[in-house]
Write a protein that binds this DNA or RNA. Structure first.
Lengths: 99, 99
DNA sequence: ATAGTAGTATCGGATAACCGATACAAGTGC
DNA sequence: GCACTTGTATCGGTTATCCGATACTACTAT
């Protein structure tokens, strides 16, 4: 997710994971994150992330009639997610007992 | 760890976890992170984190003779870590199968 | 058609994460 | 003593994160 030695990019990672489970809109993601974190991320936080993931070809808009865009993960996204997840687990593996 | 709706602060969280396991020096932490991430975080990354954790009373220097400072977690740090870990798990609970 | 609403999108600015370079402190070996 | 090494620390600058405010789009209902 990061490229260099950085801890940044966790939000992108999390969003990609959510989308990988099922197609979601920007607002769906905000709601899910609200459930998990207890506070609702701003629109100005989420849409740029979606845009970036999109520009990297990891997700695509699923044009489904209405004005609500649903995003789905691409094969490239799947691969990236796998790598990122592996890295994530390597980093935090000592947390496994906490789950 | 964060306070607001932010994803930032994962490095601090991780460092605090490492120290909670056993007393470590700045360089120990860099080495451990290198093992986990595959690249070595800069000194300019780690020491400011240590300083900040210290200033918040979550860790303390263990003055042990030599020039190598070891840090240990404080009771306050323990409590903070517990809270932060709970938040972390709530956020990423769907990753439990990946561990 | 007009008003209202829900979801999407962007922009500007503040914060903090992170690195590279540099400097400092305290041992070790010759 | 003097070079060398190892670990600690700071400073400056770049980049990313994140938010609040604002605007846009398109569907809905009256």
């Amino acid at each position: 997710m990061t490229g260099t030695c950085e801890m940044k990019g966790f939000l992108s990672f999390l969003v990609l994971r959510l989308i990988s489970k099922k197609a979601m809109s920007g607002d769906d993601i905000r709601s899910e994150l609200e459930k998990r974190k207890g506070c609702r991320p701003s629109a100005g936080t989420i849409y740029p992330v979606l845009k970036e993931l999109s520009s990297r070809g990891l997700i695509v808009e699923e044009k489904g009639g209405g004005r609500i865009k649903k995003y789905t993960i691409t094969p490239t996204g799947q691969k990236e997610l796998k790598v990122a997840t592996r890295k994530f687990v390597a980093m935090f593996y000592d947390l496994k007992d906490e789950f």
